[in-house]
Design a protein around this nucleic acid. Structure first.
Length: 272
DNA sequence: CTGAGCACCTGAGGGC
DNA sequence: TGCCCTCAGGTGCTCA
């Protein structure tokens, strides 16, 4: 279930199966994802030049100057295998084959996307145009965050999940990053100090990087195992741990709801 | 403009 | 066993 580290891990796992490979076949079995999936042009026989990630989107640039824009939504995953799986797992919506094997997009809730558009227009697409900076890039800095939060009166936790502020920080890593930075998730965003913004930026990067490293280290399992991409053992400090003791101070971890999403935090460590 | 709430979907798990 | 309820890692839209 994809947050940014899972998407990054998925992309790295897909690369050997897709990059510089010819798409021999593609079958769209269920076209109705978050947006309709019909492809603008046939892609059989085209080569995947390069894979790229922007926010939680996977971009596959094709040799005819079009790009596949793939999003995994809440429940999507890509699997790789030698041959087309038989029987196909439930909710297999797109199956592609290359000389290296088969790639299957499985997405029970169908909040994902599989679109094709001109490469030159991808970044201007309405889905992409207004995205904030990449969390792991240098544009996401304490100075930037401090500046942009000044106009945000909502609580920091939902603000951190706002794609206009920064992309790629989902519900799990928002809670985890705020815990590491010792910031109360309910604090109005505009009230964060500059030092807190510095700390939060640092901990967002640390948290995401740790998860990517953990995912990367299990990549070898994908090649030889069941082929599921984007799953790895999470080591959460607060997420899903309500009622359990804080790993730092032993205080009972609390669970609250903010903007219809669950937030976990330590009331003692995160009192400011 | 902002913030709150809803919408899109299916499946898992708990209570009865 | 089955029904009903709640909840789930995302994100764009509408409305006040």
């Amino acid at each position: 279930m994809p947050e940014l580290p899972e998407v990054e891990t998925t992309l790295r796992g897909l690369a050997p199966y897709l990059e510089k490979q010819i798409i021999r076949t593609i079958e769209i079995r269920v076209a109705k994802l978050r947006l309709p999936t019909p492809l603008a042009k046939p892609i059989q026989g085209l080569t995947v030049l390069r894979l790229e990630r922007r926010a939680k989107y996977i971009l596959a640039h094709l040799s005819d100057k079009t790009t596949l824009l793939i999003h995994l939504g809440m429940s999507g995953r890509m699997t790789v295998s030698q041959n087309i799986p038989s029987p196909l797992p439930k909710h297999s919506h797109v199956i592609m084959t290359t000389p290296r094997g088969a790639i299957t997009l499985v997405d029970p809730r169908r909040f994902g996307l599989f679109l094709q558009m001109e490469t030159s227009k991808v970044l201007a697409h309405p889905l992409m145009a207004k995205l904030g900076p990449e969390p792991l890039g240098k544009d996401f800095s304490g100075a930037y965050l401090y500046r942009i939060l000044k106009s945000k009166s909502t609580a920091i936790k939902p603000t951190l999940m706002d794609n206009h502020v920064v992309v790629g920080v989902g519900n799990i890593y928002a809670s985890e990053s705020l815990f590491r930075a010792k910031i109360n998730p309910q604090k109005p965003a505009k009230k964060l100090t500059r030092a807190q913004c510095d700390s939060l930026v640092k901990e967002v990067k640390n948290t995401l990087n740790d998860a990517i490293v953990a995912g990367g280290s299990s990549l070898r399992d994908y090649a030889h195992g069941n082929g599921q991409l984007g799953y790895f053992q999470h080591q959460f400090r607060v997420y899903g741990r309500d009622g359990e003791p804080c790993v730092t101070c032993g205080t009972v971890i609390k669970k609250i709801t903010q903007a219809q999403r669950t937030t976990f935090f330590c009331p003692k460590c995160q009192s400011h």
